[in-house]
């Protein structure tokens, strides 16, 4: 028996790319439940004048997505844990990315991002790589497989691996 349909949270980089390429929400994602988080919304709108074409185009895309996930306490605390656990990645986990990943984990949503290098090491995080997806392609959910975050054996995760080893040896 099929489980409940997958739900998604979208990263700001994906919405920004959709704007640049003139893609719409339905063609990009298909008829699925996709929301941003408040952090993503802020990333897309802060610093732009309200009637600027980029602002208006971003708002138009956000209006076609579901309501943003708020910065709930549970997300904040989960993000704090992520920053502690993954802060020593080669490209250190940033606060905004920690909040987005935490929102995905807390709300059991799949993260759609084209910045996989910012998230791939977060264990248990389900994500879709949207990089290279363009106009005329099948909706992302059909075109790409869901991946699951894990600490890799590549050099970018070396310091996280070392931290884990140190912690284990203390125990």
């Amino acid at each position: 028996m099929a489980g409940p349909p997958d739900r998604y949270i979208v990263d700001a980089c994906v919405v920004a790319r959709m704007r640049r390429m003139g893609m719409d929400v339905l063609a990009t994602f298909g008829p699925v439940d996709v929301v941003p988080s408040l952090v993503v919304v802020d990333e897309l709108l802060f610093g732009l004048p309200e009637h600027h074409p980029i602002y208006e185009a971003n708002v138009g895309l956000l209006a076609d997505l579901g309501d943003p996930i708020e910065n709930e306490p549970e997300i904040f605390f989960r993000a704090t844990d992520l920053l502690r656990d993954y802060g020593r990645h080669h490209e250190p986990l940033e606060e905004r990315d920690a909040m987005i990943a935490a929102a995905a984990l807390v709300h059991d949503r799949i993260l759609i991002t084209s910045n996989v290098s910012d998230f791939h090491f977060i264990e248990g995080l389900r994500y879709l790589d949207a990089s290279g997806h363009g106009v005329g392609d099948a909706p992302l959910m059909q075109a790409r497989d869901v991946l699951i975050g894990a600490i890799s054996s590549s050099p970018c995760c070396e310091l996280i691996r070392a931290d884990r080893k140190r912690r284990r040896s203390r125990v």
Partner: peptide
């Protein structure tokens, strides 16, 4: 700071 700005963004959406 994100929360303090959020009202404006929600109104625009």
């Amino acid at each position: 700071e994100v929360d303090a700005r959020a009202g404006r963004w929600k109104a625009s959406i």
